[in-house]
Simulated assay, not measured.
Amino acid sequence: MPFFAAFLISFLVVLVATPIVNRLGKRVGLVDKPNHRKVHKRPMVRLGGVAMFIGVVVALLIVWSTGGFGVLKPGKESEVWGVAIGGIAFFLIGLADDLFSLSPKTRLLLQFVVAGLAWQSGVQIDFLTNPIAGLVSLPEWASLPITVIWLVGMANAINWIDGLDGLAAGVSGIAAFVMFWTCLFMGQPQAALFAAALAGATFGFLRYNFNPAQIFMGDGGAYFIGFTLAGVGVIGLVKSVTTVAVLLPYVILAVPILDMSAVIVDRLRRGKSPFVADKRHLHHRLLKAGLSQRLAVLFIYSLTLWAGSLAMAVSGMPSGVGYAIAATIVLSVTSWQVWRTAR
Rank of each mutant, 00 (worst) to 15 (best):
Q124P: 00
V251H: 01
S172D: 04
A175I: 10
V21R: 07
V314R: 02
S101E: 13
G82I: 10
G220Y: 01
F210K: 11
G204P: 08
W141S: 07
G122D: 04
P104K: 07
A176N: 00
Y250R: 02
T147F: 05
Q124C: 08
L144M: 10
G116F: 14
A313D: 05
P34L: 13
V83F: 10
S261H: 06
D98Y: 08
L92H: 03
H281N: 01
I174V: 13
N22Q: 15
M44C: 03
W64L: 14
V21Q: 11
T243S: 15
D278E: 09
A222P: 00
G233E: 09
V265N: 07
A196E: 04
H281K: 00
A142T: 11
P212I: 03
W336N: 12
V330M: 13
A213L: 05
A192H: 03
M1L: 05
F203Q: 03
A342K: 12
N22R: 15
L295S: 06
Q188A: 15
E77W: 04
P34M: 14
S319E: 14
D278W: 09
A192E: 04
G68R: 11
G75S: 13
A311K: 02
V265T: 10
L184P: 00
A192L: 06
F69N: 11
L138Y: 07
A175P: 01
V57K: 01
V276I: 13
Y250V: 15
A5N: 08
V234Y: 03
H284C: 02
A84C: 11
V45S: 02
Q188T: 08
P19K: 06
L310M: 11
S273K: 10
I257H: 02
A169P: 04
A197V: 07
A118I: 08
P256I: 10
L303P: 00
A230H: 06
K279W: 01
G290D: 08
K41E: 14
W181P: 00
G218T: 07
G75I: 12
I225E: 01
T18Q: 06
V58G: 04
P318I: 09
A115N: 05
S103H: 09
T328Y: 11
W119G: 00
G173L: 12
L268N: 04
I174E: 03
L61G: 06
P139K: 08
G170N: 07
